[in-house]
Design a protein around this nucleic acid. Structure first.
Lengths: 152, 152
DNA sequence: AGTGAAAGAACGAAAAC
DNA sequence: GTTTTCGTTCTTTCACT
């Protein structure tokens, strides 16, 4: 599906603030409320907008310690990969996990309270998984940018 | 501020689907609509809920190529760091940027259309920045997990 | 902290242009 | 594509516990 200029503007606004009403959007885009409504419905139906979520402030909920953890598996059979991925997905500390190229097989973004909690996570959750080869943790000192908005 | 069980449940639900109405939440939590309303307002006021956003499907908007790019700076004076961070923040392809420990100084999550677009990004945007030492790109083969929801 | 009631605003669908 | 209308639903405030 192709997105015209109005669609793109709607997506830009909703990626910044999904509480914006159709009326507000209609004024910004110089369209009728109904036109905005129909466009958003279409964007949802097509799956371009996948979901609407509330974002929390990690500091305020004591999950401000972000770690990128790279993992190498010992074996790479389909079976092991699938099991590893299922187990990783089930861990709430792991917000993101990508299968990647390069020296390591996976890169994880892990959110925990502090270093102690990360150690606990490593010892009780990560290293107990089967077929983990080596891991390398990269600790974040500061969050420079962190957005969910994709520029169209 | 401390979050009781009801607060945590509200946050869990809203992190999954912020379009859930106060009425739906009130039924799930066995509270009145007003009680839910007041709790959400408090969570917003305290900054625990930082914003509400629409999430797009990267595949549908041709931004499915995710790259983790690690960057080393040549110099590390306060001035250079600040300028680098300001410039990185302004790049729409960079969704996340963290100042990190370890061999490299920064780790970036970059979303572009494909390898050609990434090359273009590197050549025209990243390597034109001053004081970049070396970079290392890790390409993602598959997205295993990617959530914005923090487990409380 | 909580509830119920009521006004006001927005949604969602249909009509007609 | 647009405007208008209308019933329904949700939001928000208020009085009260």
């Amino acid at each position: 599906m192709k997105l015209d200029d109005k669609d793109q503007q709607i997506l830009e606004y909703l990626q910044q603030d999904s509480k914006m009403t159709n009326k507000q959007l209609s004024m910004k885009l110089d369209l009728s409320v109904t036109a905005v409504y129909e466009r958003i419905k279409r964007l949802e139906r097509e799956g371009i907008i996948s979901k609407y979520v509330a974002l929390l402030n990690p500091e305020k909920v004591e999950k401000a310690f972000t770690v990128f953890c790279q993992i190498k598996l010992i074996q790479h059979t389909r079976n092991y990969l699938t099991r590893f991925e299922a187990e990783i997905t089930s861990l709430p500390e792991v917000l993101e996990c990508f299968h990647v190229s390069g020296e390591y097989d996976y890169i994880l973004k892990v959110l925990v309270k502090d270093m102690a909690a990360y150690r606990e996570f490593m010892v009780t959750k990560l290293t107990t998984l089967d077929h983990i080869g080596s891991t390398q943790s990269t600790f974040t000192i500061e969050k420079v940018k962190n957005t969910t908005a994709i520029k169209l």
